[in-house]
Simulated scan of single mutants.
Amino acid sequence: MTQQDLRVGIIGVGMMGADHAERVASRISGARLVAVSDPDVARATALATALDGVRVIDDPLALVGDAEVDAVIIASPGFAHAEQLMACLEHGKPVLCEKPLTMDAESSLRVVEAEHKVGRPLIQVGFMRRFDPEYAALKQLLDSGELGRTLLLHNVHRNKTVPETFRSEMIVRDSLVHEVDVARWLFDDEIVRITVHAPTPTSLVGEGVLDPQFAVFEMANGAIADVEVFVNFQVGYEVRCEAVAEQGSAAIGLGVDVLTKKAGHWGGAVPDDFRVRFGLAYDIEVQRWVNAAAKGEIDGPTAWDGYAAAAVCTAGVQSLQERRPVEVEMVRRSEVLG
C-alpha cells in the first residue's frame, strides 16, 4: 500500500452495497470508491453514474483481480461469498465481507484455512454491532468486572418487513447470526449448543415461513443467551440487548435518546430499517477497516469469527428443522491456526 487513498471496489450494490458505496464515496477518509459489480448491471450503472469516477465491472471476480482495486467490500448474497473470498485471498486483497461469511460451517472453515495459508489476515467480517457505540460501551462495562460475572444475555431483533423470498432458514443465517456474534463477543466464549423454537407464526408471512423464532444459546462456560427474532414485526426496526450479571444488569437499544410528549401522548420514533439504527456503527466499522487495510492489517471480527458464527447457524437451522437442541460442531482453533 502507498500513502494514496485506498482504492475500494464493491461487489453487490443492493440495499447494503449501495449504502456502503455512498459511505465510501462521501464519508470515509483515506479511501476512494473506484469500481462496483452487480448481476443487475443497470442498477450498478445507475449507482456508478451518480458517483464520480466509479467504473462498472460486470464480473465480480474481475473486479477482485483488477489492478486498480486495492481492497474489496463484499455485499453480495451469502451463497456467492465463498468464491469471492477465495479470489480476494488469491490476489492478496483486504476484504470486508458482509455476514454471513459463507452459507455453512464447512465452506467457512475452508476460507479460514485458505487465509491461514496466505500467512496474514485479510478478511474482516461485517458484524458491525461490535462498532456500535452502545454495544461497545456494554462490552467495556462487562469486561471491567464492575457488575461481576455475566450470567445471562437477553436479545430482541425485529425488522419491520423483509422480502417474501426471506425464508425460515434465512432468519437464522442472515438475522440471528448477528446475535450469535454478539453472544460470543460479550461472553468472550463459544456457543456449544443451540435450540431454535418456532412459535405459531405471524399470519403476515407465506406458507411454511416460521417467523418469529426464539433461540437459546448455551455457552461453554455455562452462561445462557436468548434471542427473539421477528423479521415481519410491522412496527419498525428494533434491536435490544440486556446483560444480567451477578451484581447488576445493563441494557442497550431502548431508543430513549429523544422522548417526546405531544397532544396527550408520549414516545419516540422507531426507525424503518438497520441503516438508521446502525448507521454510525457502519461508518465506524468501514473507517476502521480502511485504516487497518492501508497498514496491511484488519481491525474487527475475523474469518474465524465468521466460521464460528456459521457453525452455530448451521446447528441452528438443524435445530429449527428437527425441533430439538443441537450441539455446535467446530474444530479447535489451535488445529487450524496453530
Rank of each mutant, 00 (worst) to 15 (best):
Y282N: 13
V256W: 05
R288I: 00
R240F: 01
H265D: 03
I284L: 14
G236I: 10
G267I: 04
G248F: 04
I252L: 09
D226C: 09
L254T: 08
E246D: 05
W289Q: 01
R275Q: 14
A243W: 03
L259Q: 00
F274P: 01
V229W: 04
A308M: 12
G296A: 13
V276H: 11
N291G: 10
V231C: 09
A309I: 11
E228Q: 05
G300H: 02
L259C: 08
V286F: 02
Y282F: 15
D283Q: 11
V235M: 08
V231Y: 05
T302W: 15
V229S: 11
V239Q: 02
A225V: 03
D305F: 14
G248N: 07
L254S: 11
A308I: 06
A225E: 07
E242G: 03
R275W: 07
G306M: 11
G248R: 10
N221F: 02
A269C: 10
W289D: 00
G268H: 00
W266E: 01
G296T: 12
G264F: 05
F233K: 12
N232M: 07
G264C: 10
V227A: 03
E297S: 13
R240S: 11
V229T: 14
A250Q: 06
D305Q: 09
V244N: 04
A308S: 14
D283G: 08
G253L: 04
V270D: 04
A294K: 15
T260H: 06
G267M: 02
A223W: 09
L280V: 15
Y282D: 14
E242Q: 10
N291V: 03
L259A: 11
V231K: 04
V231T: 15
A308W: 13
D273I: 08
V312N: 14
E285V: 04
V290H: 02
A250D: 04
V258Y: 00
W289G: 01
N221C: 10
G268A: 14
E285Q: 14
V312F: 07
T302D: 12
D305V: 12
E238C: 06
R275E: 07
T302N: 15
H265F: 10
A250Y: 05
V229Y: 09
E238M: 09
A223F: 07
A310T: 09
Q234N: 05
A250I: 04
R288K: 10
D299P: 00
G279M: 10
V290E: 00
G222E: 01
A293R: 01
G222K: 07
V290D: 00
A281T: 11
V227D: 03
G253K: 03
A251K: 07
L254P: 04
A294C: 09
G248K: 10
I252C: 08
G255S: 02
K295Q: 15
D299R: 01
V244Y: 03
V276R: 12
D299V: 05
N291L: 09
K261H: 09
I284K: 09
R240I: 02
F278I: 06
E246T: 06
G264I: 11
A310Y: 11
D257R: 06
A311K: 08
G264D: 00
V258M: 00
Q287A: 13
D305I: 08
F233Y: 13
I252H: 07
V290Q: 01
D272Y: 09
P301F: 13
